[in-house]
Design a binder for these strands. Structure first.
Lengths: 209, 209
DNA sequence: TGCACGATCACACATTTGTGTGATTGTCTG
DNA sequence: CAGACAATCACACAAATGTGTGATCGTGCA
């Protein structure tokens, strides 16, 4: 059973090149190719596609929007963005929309087949430049500051976790089977350690740590 | 100028295998190999290493901790985790610690050289199984909920941004040149739209949106 | 054995917040 | 032009929060 691939790409030359590449390779079959997002959106759900190669820059609806819509209809399809854009914004938007891979068009054709297989097996093929951008956002969102939350005891962390869900002292106390006064005691220490003076500040430090 | 590589790996066989692989390849040179994190931590800063291959499971200090410490000392070195662990927790911890790549040990040796080059050129080599885990966390953290924060007006967003920094009503008013009463008015509408009843809940929705 | 420290609880008081009930002004749109 | 709506401000009162100043109990460690 070959891997069924569909293509959405507006440049004829590239689209035909990819179609030829896929059809002439053992184990791969191109089951459809479209020059715009609208056609792809209408036809792809009927095809037995396993993997879709999606260009981002398309005439009307862009490829990211197209993935978003298709993914909600047929979540089993794996989408690989195939594009020239290297900026973080487009990468993240694509991944959020449900794409599992993101490749630059300058990827050598031979590699593309490998990536398609990867995606089909549940991997997330990414050019390593792209992966770096993703990793960086990861590092920014998590690492960054000295992280004072590290000095908190297990119990204090537990309290803070509940605080970060918006519960009042009383509610937290009820859930942890302690009095609200105790919760306040813990909070006092937490504020001291985090050097803050309100729930909100504490929660911000906790969530963005 | 070859790429200088150092290795931290406790299994003699693997360490020697990697050393041989690197030294027998054009353009690569192994400038050091260590059987534990402590030795690596002490020696690597003196070596002119470009890329370090780091095992995670080491006798005393683990590889993630070792990367964290080395990265603060010599941030120009690129670290690639080379391990058997495939669980999200270790992957994320490594990336947060400053690793730029994460490869599974079952990666074919030939590929490893390619990955080292990738890392050296500023990429983030990752086995596609690993990339998938990273992408998934990305999708979870961003996508997900209906995002009620979308309905907020520009001004309301501004207020919320300040609120999320932990300022009191008075402080926010001063910064935006409006009275604290007005801030309270805005907050009232914000709470309504977000369906919450406290600053903390609002901030949580805002930060995790 | 003694002491530091985390976890628990209590009371008091000032401040901040959440919310009900208003009002005024400007802008945009059908 | 009327009506919707965002932005501004005011007053009042109850509830929640922040903080000072205590106490008790258990566990680990020097």
């Amino acid at each position: 059973m070959p891997i069924n691939v569909a293509i959405v790409e507006d440049k004829n030359e590239i689209r035909e090149g990819l179609t030829f590449l896929i059809n002439s390779s053992e184990g791969y079959r191109c089951v459809g190719s479209f020059g715009n997002a609208e056609d792809g959106l209408a036809q792809i759900p009927q095809l037995k596609a396993d993997v879709v190669l999606m260009d981002i820059n398309l005439p009307k609806m862009n490829g990211i929007e197209c993935v978003r819509k298709l993914k909600t209809k047929k979540s089993s399809i794996q989408f690989i963005m195939l594009t020239v854009y290297e900026d973080s914004e487009r990468i993240f938007e694509s991944l959020k929309a449900g794409a599992s891979g993101y490749l630059l068009k300058r990827t050598p054709p031979a590699k593309i087949l490998e990536w398609i297989g990867d995606a089909h097996r549940g991997g997330s093929p990414m050019s390593s430049e792209i992966a770096r951008k993703v990793v960086q956002s990861f590092q920014k969102n998590t690492h960054a500051s000295p992280d004072e939350t590290a000095q908190l005891s297990a119990r204090e962390n537990e309290i803070l976790t509940h605080l970060a869900k918006g519960f009042t002292y009383k509610e937290i106390g009820d859930q942890l089977f302690i009095s609200s006064e105790t919760v306040r005691s813990h909070l006092r220490r937490i504020y001291e350690k985090l050097q803050v003076h309100s729930r909100t500040e504490a929660v911000v430090k906790f969530l963005t740590r």
